[in-house]
């Protein structure tokens, strides 16, 4: 039982990272109807940003403050991925509005280039990011069940980010504009909202969230140029299961896939668990083709 609880705990902490990345994806897809295949590469950019910050701290700054590098790494990852996102939106995405299928192909090309760029700069082998000392160790619930601090910290970080996103989307002027453009672009534009500006900022913001996810992933293992590809399909499944464009759906989808995956892996084995969870998602979509949470609309081609 204890192993199972630990597995579930690990599953939730990993899927909370996906939730963060998937939220970025869900917002941009809901807003612009663009599928960003390079979203996984923003995770990778965030992870490498954390790696660079760690290197700067260990080389140029006194050892006593090394432990605090992670607090710099989080905003740095957000900024790095966000800037890349903004540039991508300006250069590529802005040509692809209304061409959802084409956007898949073009952004896949972007992801190839970004991966190769990472390979050229940091080398093909994976690199390790040393996590701060205060994160090594575990919370002892009772003998046999220990919850690692790292994973607790990740969950805390995700919860903080979620709260921030909630306030941004539902309590701020900017969020109101985003939701307005999501619901009805033409109407929002005619009421004086600069939709192009909203698009660019939101895309950058969504990419930044993926960057934070990448920063969190550095705590769990080594990172490499293909880091993003390993997670992109999972992230997309979270979005599809939850219902595209719905934030609550994304959170629920991430939670379901995370716990479902670990439970099935625990009951069967690692490969079969993954196959089963995808099969279950496809079967579920038979029943609710638009995912868990849907925004009802009378238009035909939504």
């Amino acid at each position: 039982m204890d192993t199972y609880l630990l597995q579930i705990f690990n599953g939730i902490s990993v899927s909370s990272i996906f939730m963060l990345a998937a939220l970025g994806l869900a917002i941009t897809f809901g807003l612009m109807k663009i599928i960003n295949m390079a979203h996984g590469e923003f995770i990778m950019i965030g992870a490498y940003a954390a790696y660079v910050i760690q290197n700067i701290f260990s080389q140029y700054l006194p050892a006593s403050i090394f432990d605090f590098y992670f607090f710099i790494a989080i905003p740095a990852s957000f900024l790095a991925a966000g800037i890349f996102g903004w540039v991508l939106e300006r250069l590529v995405i802005c040509h692809l509005y209304g061409r959802a299928l084409d956007s898949i192909l073009a952004t896949w090309g972007v992801s190839l280039i970004l991966q190769q760029l990472a390979r050229s700069i940091f080398g093909a082998p994976n690199v390790d990011v040393k996590s701060p000392d205060w994160l090594n160790g575990a919370l002892l619930i009772h003998p046999g069940l220990q919850l690692p601090y790292k994973r607790l910290f990740i969950m805390l970080m995700v919860i903080i980010c979620m709260t921030a996103i909630y306030y941004l989307m539902y309590r701020s002027n900017y969020g109101r504009k985003i939701r307005a453009v999501m619901q009805n672009r033409a109407m929002a534009a005619s009421l004086g909202i600069n939709t192009r500006k909203i698009d660019a900022y939101t895309f950058a913001f969504g990419s930044g969230l993926a960057g934070i996810a990448g920063c969190a992933l550095t705590l769990l293992g080594s990172i490499g140029p293909t880091l993003g590809t390993n997670y992109i399909v999972d992230t997309f499944m979270v979005v599809v299961l939850g219902g595209v464009g719905s934030l609550w759906g994304t959170i629920a989808g991430g939670f379901l896939i995370g716990t479902g995956n670990t439970t099935l892996e625990f009951l069967t084995d690692a490969t079969l668990g993954k196959v089963l969870i995808f099969t279950l998602v496809i079967i579920f979509l038979q029943w609710r083709p638009k995912g868990l949470f849907t925004i009802n609309s009378r238009s035909l081609d939504e």
Partner: peptide, 10 residues
């Protein structure tokens, strides 16, 4: 290949 993806599509 990456550039080909982008340029051809756009």
């Amino acid at each position: 290949l990456g550039l080909a993806f982008i340029i051809v599509v756009i």
